[in-house]
Structures are given as structure tokens and as C-alpha cells.
């Protein structure tokens, strides 16, 4: 692709009508789509003039100094890794490049929502230290910038994998996947779900229903519905808030 065509594509993407802003910051990843590191690399790749990219990832904040579609370095981070912050990235220092990846992954990798704010650049390193291009970082960090997004229900289940004791995912009545001991969930699916959905007067659209203490072992059950997808999940009750937050980010 020529530089001109690529530039036109990027301007078009920035002007897209579905761009969402929150308190002045542009949302670049929601519910893991695209994955937070890919979203950050895309922003780096879109930045020509030198800027301080303030990335907010749920509660964490990291400031990246970016210029000429290259990440020069990490200017500040809300926690961790003093050995990376303030240093210009260079291919000649692979440990530093790897540490930057670890820092970004820890701060942003599991965030449900990522936003970016473009700030005026702050003095950083020496003028000749250019950093590493987004594509170069993707290669070094083994990130696929052209990743195909997973369907929303798969992303929801994947996000909540650690909270789930067991789960069943059906599409159009066909089993897609299951995990854990699904005996109780399968019984609910076979004997109750059709009647339950018939009784519901909540209308169509995506829904999440969470029932604490609904399973005989004391665990909670959740029913997630999105288009033709239905998922039943057994989970520990203390994950209710996280389950709802991820549902809202991905399916709500």
C-alpha cells in the first residue's frame, strides 16, 4: 500500500462515525476488542507528530511518547517498572523492549476499556533516539496486528474464564463448547431453560441474568443471551460485579 493510501485509510478510520469518546478521551478497545496491546500499537501506528499518548486502562494510566509512528518510550506509568519508565526504547536493548511489553500487558492487557488522550509532548530522551515502530514492536512482541476478532459471546466467556467453575455455550441450539463439570448446567438447559425464556417478558436483545446461590453447591448461575448465542455459567458469587462489567463492555 502506498503511503498516501495508508494515510487516507487512517484519516478515514479516525473520522469513523462509530468513534466513541468518554470525557474527552477516545475509546480504543472495549471488552478486549481489539485486544488492548493491539489497540495501543494501532494508536502508535497512527501517530505522526510527536505526542504524549495518555492511555487509560480501567483504573491504570500509562503515558507513551510517540513520534513518526514509533514508540520512543514510556514516560510514566501508574504503577511498576521504574527500569522502563523514562528510557528510550531501542532494538539494541531487547531486555528493555521486553520489559516495556510486560509493563503494558500488566497495566492494560486485561482491561475492559481502553481510552487514549493525545497530549502535548514532554521532553524525552535525545532528539536522535527514535524508538521502535509499531510494526517492529508487533514483531518483537509477537503480536498479530491483523487478528480476526472473536465473536462477542466467545470474548465474554474468554474474559470470564477464570471466574467460571463450569460453562456451556450454545449457538442456535447447537453445542459450541463446554468446560468444567456441566452436570447441573446441562440439567437446567434440558429441563428449565425453554420454559424460563417463555416466561420472560423482558423483550429481545442481549441479556445477562445472574442468580446467586442457584446451584446446590452454593455457587451462582448466569445465563447470557446474545442473538443466537446462549451461555450458561456456574461461577463464584464474588465475581458478580466483574461478570456484569464485562457483559456490559462486550454484549450490553
Amino acid at each position: 500500500m502506498s503511503d498516501l493510501a495508508e494515510l487516507a485509510q487512517k484519516i478515514s478510520a479516525l473520522a469513523a462515525k462509530d468513534t466513541v469518546f468518554e470525557t474527552g478521551a477516545r475509546v480504543i478497545s472495549t471488552g478486549g476488542e481489539p485486544s488492548p496491546i493491539v489497540a495501543i500499537l494501532n494508536e502508535i501506528d497512527d501517530t505522526i507528530l510527536e505526542r504524549d499518548l495518555e492511555i487509560q486502562a480501567d483504573g491504570a494510566i500509562v503515558n507513551l511518547i510517540v513520534s513518526g509512528r514509533r514508540l520512543r518510550g514510556i514516560a510514566a506509568a501508574s504503577s511498576g517498572a521504574d527500569d522502563v519508565v523514562g528510557h528510550v526504547l531501542s532494538r539494541e536493548e531487547p531486555d528493555m523492549v521486553a520489559a516495556a511489553f510486560v509493563l503494558l500487558s500488566e497495566l492494560c492487557g486485561r482491561a475492559q476499556r481502553l481510552t487514549v488522550r493525545y497530549l502535548a509532548p514532554q521532553p524525552f530522551g535525545k532528539g536522535g533516539e527514535r524508538g521502535i515502530s509499531a510494526k517492529g514492536l508487533a514483531a518483537l512482541w509477537k503480536i498479530d496486528l491483523d487478528e480476526v476478532p472473536k465473536p462477542p459471546m466467545e470474548r465474554f466467556l474468554s474474559t470470564n474464564r477464570s471466574a467460571a467453575i463450569a460453562m456451556i455455550h450454545m449457538t442456535d441450539g447447537e453445542m459450541q463448547s463446554s468446560a468444567g463439570d456441566v452436570t447441573a448446567l446441562q440439567s437446567i438447559l434440558d429441563t428449565q431453560l425453554a420454559d424460563f425464556r417463555g416466561l420472560q417478558t423482558l423483550g429481545g436483545g442481549a441479556q445477562l441474568i445472574c442468580l446467586e446461590g442457584a446451584l446446590s453447591d452454593g455457587s451462582a448461575a448466569a445465563l447470557a443471551i446474545h442473538e443466537d448465542d446462549v451461555a450458561l455459567i456456574a461461577y463464584q458469587p464474588d465475581h458478580l460485579g466483574a461478570l456484569h462489567a464485562s457483559w456490559r463492555a462486550i454484549l450490553g
Binding site: 441479556q207 445477562l208 441474568i209 446461590g213 442457584a214 446451584l215 448461575a221
Partner: peptide, 12 residues
């Protein structure tokens, strides 16, 4: 829906 009466339910 479920095996036991729930103590807390959320519908979103």
C-alpha cells in the same frame, strides 16, 4: 431457573 432459590438476582 436453577437448583435452589436464589438469594440475589441480577437482570441486565
Amino acid at each position: 431457573l436453577g437448583e435452589e432459590p436464589s438469594t440475589t438476582a441480577l437482570v441486565a
